[in-house]
Simulated assay, not measured.
Amino acid sequence: MVAIYDDVTAQKQAEAAVQESHQKLFSLLDSMAEGAYGVDSNGDCTFANSAFLRLLGYGSQDEVLGKHTHELIHHSHADGSHYPASECRMYIAYQKNQSVHCSDDVFWRKDGTSLPVEYWARPILSDGIVTGAIATFVDISERKKAEVEIRQLAFYDALTKLPNRRLLNDRLTQGIAVSQRTASHGALLILDLDNFKSLNDTQGHLVGDLLLKEAARRLVSCVREIDTVARFGGDEFVVLLNDLGSDKRMALAHASMIAEKIRESLLAPYLLNISHDALTQTIIEHRSSASIGGTVFLGDEATYDNILKWADSAMYRSKDAGRNAVHFHEIENHKAQTVPFTKTSND
């Protein structure tokens, strides 16, 4: 009998060291606050850490291991439209041996809801050959919420939630450009709530704020989705009407009809509910009216500044005429014309 043996102590030690290294790596990945997972060259999941499971709503790795990761968590765009695996940017990591970073995307949870994420994907190399990729991602829900809040503060009025002067300026500039391109008229209405200061002085700013919010709601209900209602400041509002057609007389008639609809809506009594505590409330009935001025414009005939100036001038004509009135500026002779209506007493 002949026995041949080798000392495999070094080999066993090396294998143990590799196993220990893998265990440390997995422990590190599993302790991360970021989600992490690996895929093989087919895109199937090879591991997923605890943050992955928690963020995406899975109970254990058994639910994801061996599954095609793109079809599991990345199958659709944020709007719900299909996202083919062949177009997935994350696959570039192992398809083209490149690192990938995306700052704004969505993964899909087990329950079918979307999770806003920022992710990174890097190729895994073995002897110079790409065998898969590792991806990490973070939940950016709070970041997205903060972005919405910042935009809200920058472009919307805090009290009425209407577009503010800054956003109106952008939309009016766009409206002029669209009007010039399509040869379709637009119109701008500026309105001021009559005797609003006296309400603030007698009932306080809280009641005044309630009136402004209700007036904003009524204004929005009078126009189309393509139009813009903005708060210009104080008790002054602006309405931008788009796509009124190529015929100027018809456009003026349409704008006049909407202006009259707004005047009548704002003339209806206001029931303002003041909550003093959980059990005590006071309802204040208030009647108000509005002085409205407007102008119809075509993109190549009027400038931004002139449109605002003409509508504002027409609004002051309404005030001079006794308030609760509508006037429109005529571009041809740069004078304001009165839109007739049956005046309702607001005593």
Rank of each mutant, 00 (worst) to 15 (best):
D6N: 15
K12D: 09
K12R: 15
K12Y: 09
A17Q: 14
Q23K: 13
S27Q: 13
G38M: 10
C45V: 14
Y58S: 06
L65H: 05
H74I: 04
S81V: 07
S86N: 11
E87L: 14
Y91M: 15
C102S: 12
S103R: 12
S103N: 14
R109V: 05
P116V: 13
G128P: 05
G128I: 08
I129W: 05
I129Q: 15
T131Y: 02
G132S: 04
I134G: 07
F137M: 03
E142Y: 09
E142C: 07
E149T: 08
F155Q: 07
F155K: 03
F155V: 04
L167Q: 05
D170P: 07
D170F: 10
V178E: 14
S179I: 07
G186D: 01
L188Q: 05
L188F: 06
L189A: 01
D192A: 00
F196T: 00
F196D: 00
K197S: 07
K197N: 05
T202F: 05
G204L: 07
G204Y: 02
A215N: 04
R218K: 05
V223F: 06
R224P: 10
E225M: 11
I226T: 14
D227S: 03
V238A: 12
V238K: 00
D243H: 11
D243G: 06
R249V: 14
S256A: 15
K261Y: 04
R263S: 01
S265Y: 01
L272D: 02
N273H: 13
I274D: 11
H276K: 15
G293S: 07
D300N: 12
D300H: 12
D300I: 03
D300K: 10
A302G: 02
A302L: 13
A325I: 00
V326K: 00
H329A: 12
E332G: 06
E332S: 13
N333C: 13
A336K: 01
T342M: 11
K343V: 12
T344D: 10
